[in-house]
Simulated scan of single mutants.
Amino acid sequence: MSDRPSSPTPLETLQQLIDVVARLRDPQEGCPWDRAQTPQTLIPYVIEEAYEVVDALRHGDKDAIADELGDLLLQVVLQAQIAKDQGQFDIAVIAQKITEKLIRRHPHVFSDFEAQTIDEVHQNWEQIKDTENPTEAQLSHKLKRYARSLPPLMAGMKISRKAAKAGFEWKTIDGVWDKFDEELAEFKHALDYESKENQQAELGDLLFTVINLARWAGLDPAEALQGTNERFIQRLMVMEEAANRPLSEYSLDELEAFWQQAKLKIASSVSAQEKTGKR
Rank of each mutant, 00 (worst) to 15 (best):
K142F: 01
Q138P: 03
P151Y: 08
D55G: 06
E48F: 13
A163I: 00
W33C: 00
E49T: 08
I94N: 07
Q88S: 06
L153T: 04
A83T: 02
S111V: 07
F113P: 00
F89C: 04
E49Q: 10
D112A: 12
R104N: 07
A163Q: 00
D85P: 00
A147W: 08
I118A: 03
V53E: 03
H141E: 15
Q79R: 08
P32S: 10
A166Q: 04
I91T: 04
A50D: 06
N133F: 12
L102R: 06
E126Q: 10
L139P: 02
G60H: 09
A147Q: 14
E120M: 07
A166D: 01
Q123P: 01
K62S: 11
F110R: 02
V54K: 15
T41E: 11
Q81G: 01
K165E: 05
Q75T: 15
L69V: 12
L150P: 01
D85R: 09
E100W: 10
D61V: 12
V53P: 01
T99V: 09
K101A: 12
R161Y: 00
T117E: 06
E114R: 14
N124S: 08
K97Y: 04
Q116A: 10
S140R: 09
A92M: 10
I94E: 07
H141K: 13
P107K: 14
R148F: 12
K162L: 00
E48M: 07
H59N: 11
I118D: 04
W125Y: 13
K84V: 12
D119K: 03
L153R: 04
L72G: 05
W125C: 01
E68K: 08
T41Q: 06
R58N: 07
P44T: 15
I91V: 14
N133H: 15
A163D: 00
V77L: 04
N133W: 13
Q123A: 10
L42P: 01
P151R: 09
D85L: 11
D63Y: 12
L150W: 07
T131M: 09
I94P: 02
T99R: 12
D112M: 11
H141G: 02
D63R: 14
E136D: 07
P152K: 03
K101S: 06
H141T: 11
E120A: 04
V46Y: 10
D67K: 04
L102P: 01
A64T: 14
K84S: 13
T99F: 09
A36G: 06
D61K: 08
E48S: 10
K142E: 02
Q96V: 05
A163R: 00
A80V: 12
Q40F: 13
Q81T: 14
S149K: 13
H122A: 07
Q86M: 10
S160E: 05
I82D: 03
N133T: 15
I128A: 01
G156K: 05
L78V: 13
P39N: 09
P151I: 12
L143N: 07
F168L: 08
H59V: 08
E126A: 09
L143C: 07
D112R: 11
A166N: 03
N133A: 11
S140G: 13
H106Q: 10
Q116M: 10
E68H: 03
I103D: 05
A95W: 08
Q123S: 05
A83V: 02
R161K: 09
L72A: 11
N124L: 10
S111W: 15
L78T: 14
D67V: 05
Q37I: 05
A50K: 09
Q88D: 07
A137G: 03
A50N: 11
